[in-house]
Lab assay of single mutants.
Amino acid sequence: MSRESDVEAQQSHGSSACSQPHGSVTQSQGSSSQSQGISSSSTSTMPNSSQSSHSSSGTLSSLETVSTQELYSIPEDQEPEDQEPEEPTPAPWARLWALQDGFANLECVNDNYWFGRDKSCEYCFDEPLLKRTDKYRTYSKKHFRIFREVGPKNSYIAYIEDHSGNGTFVNTELVGKGKRRPLNNNSEIALSLSRNKVFVFFDLTVDDQSVYPKALRDEYIMSKTLGSGACGEVKLAFERKTCKKVAIKIISKRKFAIGSAREADPALNVETEIEILKKLNHPCIIKIKNFFDAEDYYIVLELMEGGELFDKVVGNKRLKEATCKLYFYQMLLAVQYLHENGIIHRDLKPENVLLSSQEEDCLIKITDFGHSKILGETSLMRTLCGTPTYLAPEVLVSVGTAGYNRAVDCWSLGVILFICLSGYPPFSEHRTQVSLKDQITSGKYNFIPEVWAEVSEKALDLVKKLLVVDPKARFTTEEALRHPWLQDEDMKRKFQDLLSEENESTALPQVL
């Protein structure tokens, strides 16, 4: 008996699950189920560990084997000379395990699969056993689809999209007709009724959600790893209520002995410091949205989908001078704002400069500016000194954290500008005749005249004003913003236009 009217009423009120309206889709043409990776026989039982391990490696599972009696060998002398080797079968990115008779397991190899009674669906509900069930008529011709799209860092995100009359449910929550939600590992998919569980979705590319604290899981769906560094790992996640993407940084307390840091400095109150950081608001710094204190720290951040500045300059790639100017102007505005709010970044580098898009002209935002507030000064500097390429001379020669101030950030900005303009770092371990530390503390950077011949004198002058060993003589952010190279009204107008595109209400910060 159909429950279409009941569920449609529920759909009209929406769902609290991570779902959002989605535009129309072009329906895929039908194809045989076997060619799409559906096993030839149905099963109602969950797999054992041996079955799972075989399939996850990209080899055929026991459900897909063919009797050897149906095959015969071709003698080598009868092999056609022009026969080309077969292409290897792509490894599946996800697996659906059937929970009921009449449904088959599915190895997801393609990027898009339609499910329903219509014969054009890649996964067609046409098993005779299924057709005899009382629920068969409640399934729509095109009930739902599972697909994946390219996300940040060229990774993939799996989604389920509801197109049914009676509802598609993920972990008992209604997706909603015309809406989608991301699928995470071990999600249970039910059709027409929330208790009519048909599939379990296994994402073969992500970790299980159960490793994360419950308070975090209640608000966010964790997904793929976006990156990792000395101070922690960053994962893509989704807000459950809105389906908006965020980035979540995970900082290990054990790695940084944060408990010991608190004992050594009783004034170090991470929760208080995070609340201060959350109040920071500038178009060129990453917004801190939320914070969870569990076995590790979880910092929920605004997501930038254009990648890191590092990706644009790695491998001796240089940027156009006009692009360097647009990016560097924004970096200076961001660091100036942090300094005005009493925050020294201490870890400025291309990896911590994020881009809003893949376009050459785009907004940038500074991230990882609050680590000293979370990890403690000593722990952070011990970590950073392991990779000193961007560290100021006074940091390398000081004991502990004494003896330096916000000028350290201006040195790091000078190193970043040098790399963007030239395509190579000013200080490098590859210069074996002088140690990296000695290069930095003496201010002897690697200047290649033929490379810098293409760079304007004004740009080079600003680099020199920032890479000054004496912090008292080094340019401040205010002085850098007043430098002739940055007195470019076309560049500032472009920045204002980019801000307006992102948010019509965002105004250009005042600069002296």
Score class of each variant (00 low, 15 high):
residue 245 K to G: 05
residue 8 E to V: 09
residue 251 I to Q: 08
residue 234 V to Y: 00
residue 23 G to H: 11
residue 248 I to F: 11
residue 138 T to P: 02
residue 70 E to D: 09
residue 153 K to I: 14
residue 151 G to S: 09
residue 95 R to K: 15
residue 225 T to N: 08
residue 195 R to I: 11
residue 54 H to Q: 13
residue 139 Y to L: 04
residue 199 F to V: 02
residue 65 T to P: 04
residue 271 E to K: 12
residue 205 T to P: 13
residue 80 P to Q: 13
residue 176 G to Y: 12
residue 229 G to S: 01
residue 131 K to P: 13
residue 3 R to F: 05
residue 218 D to Q: 01
residue 183 L to N: 00
residue 246 V to W: 15
residue 24 S to C: 09
residue 121 C to D: 02
residue 234 V to S: 00
residue 121 C to R: 02
residue 22 H to D: 12
residue 247 A to Q: 04
residue 250 I to N: 15
residue 260 S to E: 05
residue 117 R to K: 02
residue 177 K to Y: 15
residue 108 C to K: 02
residue 249 K to N: 15
residue 184 N to K: 08
residue 268 L to Q: 13
residue 199 F to T: 01
residue 105 N to C: 02
residue 45 T to I: 09
residue 83 Q to V: 05
residue 53 S to N: 06
residue 53 S to V: 15
residue 164 S to A: 05
residue 178 G to L: 13
residue 19 S to F: 01
residue 173 E to C: 15
residue 115 F to T: 05
residue 269 N to M: 15
residue 247 A to K: 02
residue 106 L to A: 12
residue 144 F to G: 02
residue 26 T to S: 09
residue 143 H to L: 02
residue 96 L to I: 15
residue 56 S to Q: 05
residue 120 S to M: 08
residue 52 S to W: 03
residue 238 F to D: 15
residue 264 A to D: 08
residue 156 Y to F: 14
residue 173 E to Q: 08
residue 81 E to I: 06
residue 27 Q to P: 03
residue 142 K to D: 02
residue 267 A to M: 10
residue 138 T to Y: 13
residue 132 R to A: 07
residue 105 N to R: 13
residue 187 S to C: 06
residue 204 L to Y: 06
residue 84 E to P: 07
residue 142 K to M: 13
residue 45 T to H: 11
residue 272 T to E: 06
residue 228 S to G: 11
residue 41 S to R: 08
residue 231 C to L: 12
residue 260 S to W: 15
residue 210 S to V: 00
residue 7 V to L: 07
residue 112 N to Q: 10
residue 172 T to P: 11
residue 64 E to S: 12
residue 232 G to E: 01
residue 147 F to W: 03
residue 223 S to F: 08
residue 221 I to T: 11
residue 186 N to G: 02
residue 24 S to N: 07
residue 212 Y to L: 00
residue 8 E to N: 13
residue 197 K to D: 00
residue 269 N to Y: 12
residue 105 N to M: 07
residue 149 E to F: 02
residue 134 D to K: 07
residue 246 V to Q: 04
residue 43 T to F: 05
residue 39 S to T: 06
residue 31 S to H: 12
residue 15 S to P: 07
residue 2 S to V: 13
residue 35 S to T: 11
residue 261 A to K: 03
residue 193 L to I: 08
residue 68 T to S: 05
residue 36 Q to K: 06
residue 75 P to E: 09
residue 239 E to G: 07
residue 125 F to V: 13
residue 146 I to C: 15
residue 247 A to D: 03
residue 184 N to R: 03
residue 240 R to P: 04
residue 125 F to W: 12
residue 125 F to K: 03
residue 154 N to D: 01
residue 56 S to W: 06
residue 14 G to F: 11
residue 81 E to Y: 02
residue 52 S to L: 06
residue 131 K to C: 10
residue 194 S to M: 01
residue 35 S to N: 14
residue 91 A to E: 08
residue 65 T to W: 02
residue 76 E to G: 12
residue 162 D to F: 03
residue 245 K to W: 15
residue 8 E to F: 04
residue 67 S to G: 05
residue 170 V to D: 01
residue 187 S to I: 08
residue 164 S to W: 00
residue 247 A to V: 02
residue 132 R to H: 05
residue 223 S to I: 10
residue 185 N to F: 13
residue 184 N to W: 05
residue 77 D to R: 04
residue 43 T to R: 03
residue 255 K to F: 03
residue 205 T to L: 06
residue 112 N to L: 14
residue 249 K to D: 05
residue 226 L to C: 12
residue 80 P to G: 13
residue 267 A to C: 11
residue 138 T to S: 11
residue 58 G to P: 11
residue 16 S to H: 04
residue 98 A to S: 06
residue 221 I to N: 00
residue 231 C to N: 15
residue 178 G to P: 14
residue 9 A to E: 15
residue 237 A to Y: 02
residue 157 I to L: 13
residue 139 Y to A: 02
residue 39 S to G: 14
residue 35 S to L: 05
residue 262 R to T: 04
residue 90 P to R: 12
residue 210 S to Q: 00
residue 269 N to T: 10
residue 265 D to G: 05
residue 253 K to A: 04
residue 262 R to W: 11
residue 12 S to Y: 12
residue 18 C to N: 13
residue 174 L to D: 09
residue 189 I to V: 01
residue 34 Q to C: 09
residue 167 G to V: 08
residue 141 K to G: 07
residue 267 A to F: 01
residue 164 S to K: 15
residue 97 W to Q: 06
residue 146 I to M: 10
residue 96 L to W: 01
residue 132 R to V: 11
residue 100 Q to E: 09
residue 10 Q to K: 08
residue 221 I to S: 01
residue 120 S to D: 06
residue 213 P to L: 13
residue 15 S to C: 12
residue 111 D to H: 10
residue 238 F to N: 01
residue 185 N to C: 14
residue 237 A to F: 04
residue 218 D to P: 03
residue 258 I to M: 05
residue 188 E to P: 06
residue 154 N to Q: 15
residue 195 R to D: 00
residue 55 S to D: 15
residue 42 S to L: 10
residue 31 S to M: 09
residue 19 S to Y: 03
residue 261 A to L: 06
residue 106 L to I: 07
residue 139 Y to E: 00
residue 237 A to D: 02
residue 28 S to Y: 06
residue 162 D to I: 01
residue 200 V to I: 07
residue 99 L to N: 07
residue 29 Q to C: 11
residue 210 S to G: 01
residue 172 T to C: 13
residue 198 V to Q: 15
residue 87 E to M: 09
residue 248 I to T: 14
residue 258 I to K: 08
residue 131 K to V: 08
residue 28 S to R: 07
residue 103 F to Y: 06
residue 151 G to C: 11
residue 182 P to R: 00
residue 46 M to I: 05
residue 232 G to R: 02
residue 64 E to K: 01
residue 169 F to D: 02
residue 75 P to I: 14
residue 198 V to E: 07
residue 22 H to C: 12
residue 37 G to V: 14
residue 80 P to M: 14
residue 164 S to L: 03
